[in-house]
Design a protein around this nucleic acid. Structure first.
Length: 256
DNA sequence: GCACATGTTCTCGG
DNA sequence: CCCGAGAACATGTG
């Protein structure tokens, strides 16, 4: 899935159904690459927990429970966290049955997603290595992140240690909107360019959130529906449209 | 069969 | 140790 806008959309929607509810039972597994915390332990930890809040760090979400423990999850490329009971199709890794007759399901075909239990007394290396969140990135913080970097500005935007939350789609969109070539040396941007880029990143991410994110293939909101921001892309997924001005001037139809 | 896919992490070379 | 490029991870789709 999912870059910051898609993850933020899921966060907000999950919170609406999950907050204040207790996990009464859970189906977790089978073991795979997907589980940082083994399914058997994860299940023991999850059942009985009541959700206080869900926080987002770049593209990573962390559920905070009443007892202080946390549940970290990442949607990877094809993760879907929905507020319904999905049929077991071999790609559903987690089903949570909540009080109030609500059910949550986490499905991920490619299993690049991750789920991990974080004990209340411990830190999470996964969170600690993330750079500042892109949704609120200041011009100054972006400049600090890019300073001295020899790599391309596109690669720098994708590096979650420098700035967290931006992926392929929004890196392309933000650079295009800023009129900065993706192959420019990251540390070579002028202060003015950096300022324009920081503004574009924030603005585009916010607009994408307002549209429920971008659906390219797998991403869905918690109600199972696609996002809409893909129809507003100026460059991502539109290589052919660039050389066909009559097509590029209008938005494509939603996929469904 | 081939190329490619919204992401992260590990390896290798400098 | 730092940095950057490319491969690997698992699976589906066009």
């Amino acid at each position: 899935m999912p870059e910051l806008p898609e993850v933020e959309t899921v966060r907000r929607q999950l919170l609406r159904v999950w907050k204040g509810r207790r996990i009464e039972s859970a189906q977790v597994g089978p073991p795979s690459y997907f589980f940082v915390t083994p399914p058997s332990r994860l299940k023991r930890k999850l059942v009985g927990q009541t959700l206080l809040d869900i926080k987002r760090y770049g593209k990573t979400l962390v559920a905070h429970f009443e007892d202080g423990d946390r549940f970290l999850f990442h949607l990877g490329m094809t993760g879907q966290f929905v507020a319904s009971a999905l049929a077991q199709d071999g790609h559903v890794h987690l089903i949570l049955h909540l009080t109030g007759n609500k059910t949550l399901s986490f499905r991920d075909v490619r299993k690049f997603g991750k789920v991990e239990w974080i004990d209340k007394t411990k830190n999470s290396p996964r969170l600690d290595r993330l750079g500042p969140d892109a949704l609120a990135i200041s011009s100054e913080d972006l400049q600090t992140a890019l300073r001295g970097r020899k790599t391309s500005i596109k690669a720098a935007l994708l590096n979650q240690k420098l700035l967290s939350g931006v992926g392929n789609i929004y890196a392309d969109e933000a650079l295009f909107a800023s009129k900065i070539h993706p192959e420019r040396v990251a540390g070579g941007l002028t202060k003015k360019e950096t300022n324009i880029l920081a503004e574009a990143v924030r603005r585009i991410l916010e607009q994408a959130i307002a549209s429920g994110g971008s659906t390219i293939s797998d991403y869905v909101q918690t109600n199972g529906k696609s996002g809409n921001y893909q129809n507003h892309h100026q460059v991502y997924g539109r290589a052919s449209a660039i050389s066909a001005p009559n097509v590029s001037s209008e938005c494509r139809e939603p996929t469904k």
